[in-house]
């Protein structure tokens, strides 16, 4: 288990009496690109939000580098190592693109402004947004916002990136630009955990696909296996419905 980056052990989460996650168990190794698919309400987003403690898990533990993320890691350090990209971008609307990218570096990593800006430019170029460094989030399109959000997460130089439906709030013609950035990251070796409804992206880019239903991981296999020969009847039903629409 030496190379496993993140281990989720017996994770459960309830909102009141409603149990959203039931005893989730899985491991993420360095360099893996894992897509989590499943219908709405199956607990995909909650799982991601529990992993970086935006929601407090009810039971279970998360091990990061083999150490308990809740008790043995300083929370802010853990957050800077485990980046997150949101469905609704969540860029700081009072700051421009550049400030969005340097704020975390300066506040959390205590990096000097000059160096932080250098790093920000580097990642903004990577997502093709360097020319927009003076723009405010309100002046950007959805796809551009999401790319800046990815750059902001990358500026913290995380070891793993969590994507919570990064393209679900975008116009269809903007989905491509975001997926293309994510594809670049994946081929660059970034460890990623992606909740998505983009089945073709999951099929092409993921190294593993998890199918979630009713708060449990029903299937966990290679995309080639899962998309061509799903084992569980529930997975087959889901894929039939989704793929008939998408492809």
């Amino acid at each position: 288990m030496g190379d496993s980056l993140l281990q989720v052990r017996h994770l459960s989460k309830s909102f009141g009496s409603h149990e959203v996650l039931k005893d989730i168990d899985f491991t993420v190794d360095t360099g893996e690109v894992i897509c989590i698919i499943g219908s709405s309400g199956s607990g995909k987003s909650t799982l991601l939000r529990c992993i970086n403690f935006l929601e407090q898990p009810t039971k279970g533990e998360i091990l990061y580098h083999g150490k308990n993320a809740e008790t043995e890691w300083k929370r802010t350090l853990y957050h800077s190592k485990v980046g997150m990209v949101f469905q609704s971008f969540n860029l700081f609307s009072n700051h421009n693109v550049m400030e969005n990218c340097v704020l975390g570096q300066m506040q959390v990593l205590k990096i000097k402004r000059a160096e932080a800006e250098k790093r920000a430019i580097q990642y903004l170029e990577k997502v093709g947004m360097a020319a927009y460094r003076k723009a405010r989030p309100a002046q950007l399109s959805g796809g551009q916002k999401q790319r800046v959000a990815i750059a902001r997460a990358l500026c913290m130089e995380p070891e793993i990136l969590l994507f919570d439906e990064p393209t679900s709030a975008l116009d269809p013609e903007m989905v491509g630009e975001v997926l293309s950035v994510m594809q670049d990251l994946a081929s660059g070796g970034m460890t990623m955990l992606i909740v998505t409804h983009e089945m073709s992206f999951a099929r092409d880019v993921a190294s593993r696909v998890l199918f979630m239903d009713g708060g449990v991981i029903l299937e966990d296999s290679k995309p080639s296996d899962l998309f061509t020969a799903p084992k569980m009847p529930r997975t087959q039903e889901f894929l039939k419905r989704v793929l008939s629409r998408q492809l």
Binding site: L54, F92, G104, V108, M156
Partner: peptide
């Protein structure tokens, strides 16, 4: 949440 996710207090 955006601020929390990059480690800000």
């Amino acid at each position: 949440e955006g601020a929390t996710a990059i480690g800000m207090t």
